[in-house]
Design a protein around this nucleic acid. Structure first.
Lengths: 235, 235
DNA sequence: CGCTCAATTGAGGAGTATCAATGATTGTGG
DNA sequence: CCACAATCATTGATACTCCTCAATTGAGCG
């Protein structure tokens, strides 16, 4: 994770920090990213509201969490991707893949049309950061397949926590051993491919083992190394 | 599925048929694709041999099956993607995602450097076909997440069979209700996130239900509709 | 024929799901 | 302010899916 400090008038946006974590940006690059952000809108949390029915343009998530989901006929749901602050949402791509984009909390999104155009055309460090960021998103999907296919409930959960912590640290919204976790156990279940009840028991297990404390929208990771060992494959 | 018939000297390659199934190609386009294919190499099936350690350039699979896999520390394996005739293999992308490319059968691969360059630059129908083909690969990964996260063993298996049948029909290597299935039950298990024993029992169940007959490297799908119903979400 | 690998079968157990009920918290209207 | 509804977390009981281990059968193949 690159450690260049970006100095601007206000606090840098999560996306700027995220890009900077993949390749150190110059002050000019950072300013260009900040400047390309368009109008900001707010959406409430909503079960059935679909972001991709409202906006069809790229957006960046400024605050709050969202998800790309699939709804099965019998009502079961699978969260395919979690979207965190700093992430770029592309409703068009989601729709082509049969996914709905749903807010999991209240969210603020910024119009990212100009931003995505800028990033796609970028060379040098900025272009590199953008490509790595996209590659990382793809890698997370691959890793999620492995989690669902081959890890036990507690390993899955542990591995997801490490992923979420890493992503939030990159985006500058998490401390060394604590992070936001604004998900209900039902949302976790829908992402991890488990039942609500079992997620509850798995979290209790991890807490008893001193690995993860989770309460009121925040989680504390005490010993990342031990947690990583629990997750059972390279991170 | 487009139905334009491509006429050339020899039989069209699976990739040409695959592209044509996503957007009808002109004879010129088809000839260009055929002409851009480079040297063809053969590889034996091998557990530990990794295609991406040998070649680093894009290839297209001419015959045989391969897989992008993750190996866990304890020896468990997850097949993330199955690669069938006509598919384009990008070892570089696979490596960046932590995946190994492994032949599941003996395979023939063609050098696709020029081909990929051609396709990336293509406009019109050919460009459209190439974009759709790549989008379809991405959609399959999403669908695989849903399978692993939310479907039962038999639903997963049924859904995978439908996917494999559709892909082979597009590539012109499967009949209306029969297809190649050159996978051992262990390979199926590694893809479906199940144990070998359970795959065996699941296949027996599907056979007893008259849905899938599977023997000696071939599978017969009797009633796609009923099988799709078993799979439990839209296809 | 003996070897190896794949497929199959049985038995038993671990891991998860489902159903149902209870607290705990929060928001809402009276 | 309180009663009420709604949501979320938690717990217990039970059933089922799926895994593991172990052994057997069957099919190439040198």
């Amino acid at each position: 994770m690159a450690s260049t400090v970006i100095r601007l008038g206000g606090a840098p946006s999560p996306l700027t920090l995220l890009l900077n974590s993949y390749a150190a940006l110059s002050a000019d690059d950072a300013a260009a990213v900040e400047g390309a952000l368009g109008e900001v809108r707010t959406h409430p949390v909503s079960t059935d509201f679909q972001l991709n029915e409202v906006h069809d343009q790229p957006m960046t998530l400024i605050s709050g969490w969202a998800a790309e989901t699939v709804l099965l006929e019998d009502g079961r749901r699978q969260i395919v991707r979690l979207l965190l602050p700093g992430d770029v949402i592309e409703p068009g791509e989601a729709r082509r893949a049969g996914l709905s984009v749903t807010p999991l909390t209240a969210i603020r999104v910024g119009d990212a049309r100009r931003l995505v155009a800028l990033l796609n055309a970028a060379e040098g460090q900025l272009g590199r950061a953008w490509r790595r960021l996209r590659q990382a998103a793809q890698n997370r999907l691959v890793r999620h397949v492995v989690r669902l296919g081959r890890l036990s409930a507690s390993d899955r959960t542990a591995d997801l926590m490490l992923e979420l912590h890493d992503r939030q640290r990159r985006a500058g919204v998490a401390a060394a051993c604590t992070m936001h976790l604004p998900l209900t156990q039902e949302m976790l279940a829908d992402h991890l491919g488990l039942s609500i009840v079992h997620v509850n028991r798995t979290l209790q297990q991890l807490r008893r083992d001193g690995l993860i404390y989770y309460q009121g929208g925040r989680a504390v990771i005490n010993e990342p190394e031990r947690l990583a060992a629990a997750a059972g494959f390279g991170r």
